[in-house]
Design a protein around this nucleic acid. Sequence first.
RNA 1: GCGGAUGUGGCGAAAUUGGUAGACGCACUAGACUUAGGAUCUAGCGCCGCGAGGCAUGGGGGUUCGAGUCCCUCCAUCCGCACCA
Length: 922
Amino acid sequence: MAEYDFQTIEKKWQKFWQDNNIYQVQVDPSLPKYYALDMFPYPSGAGLHVGHPLGYIASDIVSRYKRLKGFNVLHPMGFDSFGLPAEQYAIQTGQHPEITTAQNITRYKEQLRNLGFSYDWDKEVQTSSPDFYKWTQWIFMQLFQSWYNKVTDKAEPIDTLISVFKKEGNELVQAVCDEETPLFTASQWQQMTEAEQQKMLLNYRLTYLADTVVNWCPGLGTVLANDEIKDGFSERGGYPVVRKKMKQWMMRITAYADRLLEGLDRIDWTDSLKEMQRNWIGKSVGCELDFVVQDSDIILTAFTTRPDTIFGVTYITLAPEHELISQLTTDAQQQAVKAYVEKAANRSELDRMADVKTVSGVFTGSYSINPISGELVPIWVADYVLAGYGTGVVMGVPSSDDRDFRFANHFDLPIVYVIEGTETMEDPTEKKHGTIINSDFLNGMDSHEAMQAAIERAEAEGKGKSKVNFRIRDAVFSRQRYWGEPVPVYFKDDIPYLLDESELPLALPPVNEYKPTEEGEPPLGRADDWKYRDEYPYELTTMPGWAGSSWYHFRYMDPHNETEFVSKQAQSYWENVDLYIGGTEHATGHLLYSRFWTKFLYDRGDITVDEPYKKLINQGMIQGQSSIVYRVHQKNTFVSHGLKDQYKVSPMHVDISLVSNNVLDIDAFRQWREDLGEAEFILEDGKYVCGSEVEKMSKRLFNVVNPDDVVEQYGADTLRLYEMFLGPLEQSKPWNTNGIDGVYKFFRKLWRLFHNKQGAFFVTDEAPTHEELKVLHKTIKKAQEDIENYSFNTTVSSFMICVNELTSLKCQKRAILHDLVIILSPFAPHIAEELWHALGNESSVTQTVFPTFDEQYLIEAVHEYPISINGKVRAKMNFALDVSKEEIERQVLDAEPVQRWLEGKSPKRVIVVPKRIVNIVI
RNA sequence: GCGGAUGUGGCGAAAUUGGUAGACGCACUAGACUUAGGAUCUAGCGCCGCGAGGCAUGGGGGUUCGAGUCCCUCCAUCCGCACCA
């Protein structure tokens, strides 16, 4: 090989790794373990683009590094293969999603293989494979068979609950359950019919059927979770979403709200991501206070986080959906209130969100009694109060809440100031805490003391109790789709029953079409004989996309196990994921559900960990660089970017493969689409210059860069190194290949250094010099520290420096190359493997050991000190390392250049910072 | 509005955590070699200035012998949440 021939090299070693199962891994208790995981992709029809590998490269570098450091590394890859696009395609073409999915997976695997990742493909999982979803269904069944015991603070088998019911009813049971669960005694339980008992148990099960208002997306024909909606439209497809009441399977994630919150303190995720989860869970500590309605026995319970401001209450407000509104409304107000409630009900979710600023509301005519002060306050209805949060009743404190403040100002309600200093402020709500005033027994306390005191008083008088509220809701688990896991449930007399575990997997049945049925049932309604034992109808909905991804990290540990979702032995060895890399878009979806299921499985004793991912890195997105041409209105004429302002034009995305350096290849453009064959151009300087824009990489915008093309042109090692070189992993950046030549040059230099003019491998067996060892050990140290800090871009720089320095030293020594190849191998495994074998090694470079750096080569015998005078560096001097500060100071002051600057004056002080700088202040 | 983050040459970015700002790479300039290349090598490359030198890390202020780094304040951009009582 005369030159660096990456194509031959990369093919050769990829085959070698595969043929020799180099990356296969198994449980080995004699070795420490490391588990590095990427968020597995959905295999879309568009294939991988250059953005996908960013995180994969990083996790591969860490995996390879950890192997060299003696760890047994689990580094698997798989596919989140249930999902909407394959199903949409099936609806259009009639092709079974399984076929499309399989084709896409084949393509993805080939693309991944081209990049030289060290995956153990024997560990692959696919969520749509029956071997896998059998266990997704199994976990669903365990959730169904469990309830959450608040006393032990964990999930327990439903049987334990049933035996309590038999003995003593449910009065003393401390469970997370539906708020409307009625109380019953043991004998009442015994007298219930089977159906009644089953209905009752649904109030307790961790997955349950419920009539709920859901986000129904008619365009997709399915229900969506809150995090699948953006601004009232579906995230996928952008169809409108409406609120609709439907019977749905739910997951009682609220049972875990506190533990999901508390667990965040024990994991190494970014603050922003933890904060997102905290906001999503939305814990607020406060209390409920009972406002008795005047001349009535109706009690309105309000939730507040600020009981200390209770004396500032000047009105209370109900959500328009509140069921007691008509009872509370006086005859005189009846009409106005009715009109308001109706108007609010008809407002779509979107409208309501769109105008947060507008204040609206209506007085009911009634009054209620402040439970602490005893004052009478008016009862209003307003749509800024949400029915779904707290109790749907808010106590209005205009002086310390800005919505209440706006409301009171708008309707001329009185304002009572209860925090010292706020009475003179233009916006009193800006001061949230302080000394309490105008508040009877709370006067003089600070806000926090007053909260306690107010709650104590309310509790003592039986008018309230402390209470914790969460924003998080139970998760909807039903999707009216075909391409998902069937729910292992059948119905007898409308009561859901589980299949027997031995009957899993419940396989997806064939259907003739993938659309909903004419009656509006999900696609499974089309399956023939979709009945349990030919008798009882199966559930027709399927599970959501996040079902499989909520536990897949355990399946990788033991993917072929037919009797358990993961063996105890495999799980207790691999524990959980040490490093998880993926995008931030799953912050409140996958990453939350996955933690939930992990905690549940932990409660059951199936696994030994209660958090799935110890460390999480959110890699940035690689955006596309779109190219844009400008079409003159009504004409088939395109005007160059610099001249476009002189015409009326509409921009049009053009495939980036037709453009280089923003200059359009006109002939290729004419052939690109039929209607462009006759296109005319208005050029500048004889060229057509395109506009460009940084956007999400997407097929639709013709800006997708396929990694295969980059690999073809520069090789996988160059692509890997270049993606790391682009900047910090977490940072988003547009893709461009402006700097890729620099990385490519690095490999050629390295190659040429260790090959002679004829292209034969060349090293000498001479012992390395001190200077050469310094270069090497500096690089080893840097590589090790950088990888451990996930700072890969600077490692690439230090490799470049290393090769430049070795080149100028003409160092072609075996010992140097030996170590250099090893430290390079996590980044550029192919060329490293090639050189490793050229050095005469038989086994893979993967199987060797990361070299340790020796500090002795890193310590300079002398150190050059910058000499700064009044903050400016004026000279440089060398001192041996063992020279004392005092000696340095003395010599510096005697030195001729320093004397020149001192101009005879004596310095006020001299500061010697060891191995840094000498600072002289005159 | 609330929460999180970021701001350094023409560009991507470094900066041992308070110690020579701009490593490394791209682009650019000049030169060398030529089997004329999208190759390789050498040198230069923040701004002003012929120079000594001065000015520079979003703006302004502060602490310090010394600030990209710490504190205050303002501005800009990105992301997340959004009537959560």
